[in-house]
Simulated assay, not measured.
Amino acid sequence: MRFRLLGPLTVGSEDSPLDIRGNRLRAVLALLLINSGAVVPMDDIIKAVWGETPPRTVRTQVQVQISTLRALFQSIEGVKISTHPAGYSLHAPPGEIDVLVFDQLVQRGRALSAGRQLDAAAALFREALELYHGPPLCNVDAPFAQLAGVRLQERRLDVLGELFGLELRLGRHQEIVPTLTELVAEHPLRETFWRHLVVALHGAGRRGEAIATYHQVRRLLREELGLDPGRELVAAYRDLLEEEPTAPSTVDREALAATLDCLRLTEQLLRDLRRQLEALSLSLAGPADGCRGPESRAHDSMTAVADEDQTTSQSTVMEWVEPSRSRTEKSCGPEQFRLARVLTSIRPVVGL
């Protein structure tokens, strides 16, 4: 790759780089490379390189810089600077300019990601990011260079965010925690990296650290910008608080089946009890002629329940619902009233 802008501007191979002397010469070349294949008007070159107050001889200086660059590139096949009525253009094979190679790799990676080929997409993103070898255009001092360098750095950070998103989808939570920790320290206001770090910590089984990380960035955003975290970061935090339950094991399913069987048996017993109590309620609602209905075993059991503060065992309940035995007559009295009170207290339980 002959032209590298994703770091200090260099031309030629690492073994034999061309000597691009002079800041203005580097600035004109960088501007033409960023706009490779397009015509850059003379006025745009002047403003981008010399600023708002260029010297009177600025057009001549531009022509001198272009002639110098043509002399440097005359031995490089496929590289040409053309003159147009409005300005100049530089043509070079796309594979010779690192910015264009970066864009091609990212475009292919995004296509693979959309097709769920996550490993292949991540590999292309890594290859693209490896093209960066320092702050873009850090050795070019010109009005346009600082903004152009920031834009190129933003493209790197965007792809880094996409790469870590793929790594998380591939389950590599623990592996990326150290790098994400460095990135949030370098770019503390970039929420994408914070969100990935929260998710990575959670996926690595470090839930407490993930919660602390969210509150850290929340405080930071409020103190620095007066803002709350964005929607995606908040969603990651909510997912953290609402962990999915572990899928039931075989033992859990067996315990659940046993519980259901017990509930079915209890339901049947309650239905039997309800029928007995309905019959008992009808007998208690009979005529008050000074005589009560025949004594039944259910009457004896319920009296025992009242005497023992209604702390009956299952055997007592089963005895209670058995068919009544022999009947005898007794006069009405306080015991009948007491039995009615017990019946009233248990009616809500059985749905009477």
Rank of each mutant, 00 (worst) to 15 (best):
G208W: 08
V217M: 09
D15Q: 15
L201K: 12
D103E: 14
R110M: 07
S324P: 13
L343D: 10
A111I: 00
V251I: 04
A148G: 03
D228K: 04
A279R: 08
R195L: 10
T328Q: 11
L166P: 13
A204H: 10
A247T: 10
R219I: 00
L160V: 03
R155F: 01
A258Q: 11
Q146G: 08
P334C: 04
P54T: 06
V58C: 12
F73N: 06
L260K: 01
P41Y: 02
S324H: 13
H299M: 15
R253A: 12
L147S: 09
P248S: 06
D119S: 10
T57C: 10
Y214F: 15
Q276H: 02
G37Q: 09
A120N: 03
G205C: 14
F125L: 06
G333D: 14
L260V: 05
P136I: 06
Q61L: 10
H84W: 08
T311P: 00
R126P: 00
G290P: 03
G7S: 10
I45V: 15
E242P: 00
A279M: 07
E319H: 08
P55Y: 13
T303L: 14
I81H: 07
A200T: 00
S16V: 14
Q104F: 01
D15M: 12
V251R: 06
V251N: 01
L284V: 04
E267G: 14
R231I: 00
A304W: 14
E244K: 13
V64P: 01
P294M: 11
A210F: 08
M42G: 04
R219K: 02
R206S: 14
Q107P: 00
L157T: 01
V11F: 09
L339R: 11
E254Y: 07
R325E: 13
F102R: 05
L118Q: 05
S249Q: 09
S281C: 00
V99D: 11
L112F: 09
D239I: 01
G22E: 07
C262H: 02
E254T: 01
L112Q: 13
L273V: 03
A257S: 10
H202S: 15
E77H: 13
V342A: 08
L352D: 06
L265C: 04
L240Y: 07
R126H: 04
I211N: 04
E329P: 06
E224P: 02
A288F: 02
R108A: 12
P85A: 14
S249F: 05
Q153S: 15
A145M: 03
F337I: 00
L339K: 03
C291T: 15
T266Q: 09
G87S: 06
P8W: 00
F3W: 04
H133R: 12
M42T: 14
F102S: 04
T266Y: 08
T266F: 07
R151Y: 11
V99Q: 12
S313C: 00
I46T: 08
L124G: 02
V217Y: 04
R155T: 01
R238F: 12
G333I: 04
N139H: 11
H173A: 15
R70V: 03
F337D: 05
I176W: 08
D19G: 05
R238E: 14
Q336Y: 07
R195C: 10
L100K: 13
